[in-house]
């Protein structure tokens, strides 16, 4: 039961985290200062805490399931590190865009969204198949 509840919390926080990341990537691609500043506040208040919760619940699931010795789980940790790094890069670019050149489209905004979705696909594949 505790495992299932942890899984629910992990998946919910993951949805919020990924939703926030997609919003930031789109804001960088189609910039509008009127959206960027509230998005920065939203990321600080909601998306980043959701990321920390998703990581925490993910680690708890790994402990409860005894998966820290599994190869697929190690691979998943690396992919999650890359995904959280991508989120960090998106937020950093958003903050820089607001302070330095609001209104200019960020060229990397085009590539970061598909990269994030690719990472997410691999993570979901690993968790579902557990090879």
């Amino acid at each position: 039961m505790l495992y299932d509840l942890t899984k629910v919390a992990h998946i919910l926080s993951l949805f919020v985290w990924i939703g926030g990341m997609v919003a930031v990537a789109l804001a960088l691609r189609y910039p509008a200062l009127v959206h960027m500043k509230p998005l920065k506040a939203y990321d600080r208040a909601v998306t980043t805490p959701a990321m920390i919760l998703a990581l925490s619940f993910g680690i708890l699931l790994g402990v409860q399931g005894g998966w820290f010795t599994s190869a697929w789980f190690g691979m998943k940790i690396l992919l999650v590190l890359a995904l959280s790094g991508l989120h960090g890069a998106l937020v950093g670019k958003l903050r820089r865009a607001i302070s330095e050149h609001p209104g200019d489209a960020e060229p990397s905004g085009q590539i970061l969204l598909p990269v994030g979705l690719g990472l997410l696909t691999l993570i979901v594949f690993l968790v579902t198949i557990k090879p």
């Binding site: 990581l55 999650v80 959280s84 790094g85 960090g88 890069a89 950093g92 903050r95 820089r96 330095e100």
Partner: peptide, 15 residues
């Protein structure tokens, strides 16, 4: 470590 790495990458991207 994951949170620290997130802050490092964010600060790098922010300049």
């Amino acid at each position: 470590f994951m949170i620290f790495l997130w802050f490092v990458i964010r600060s790098w991207a922010e300049g």
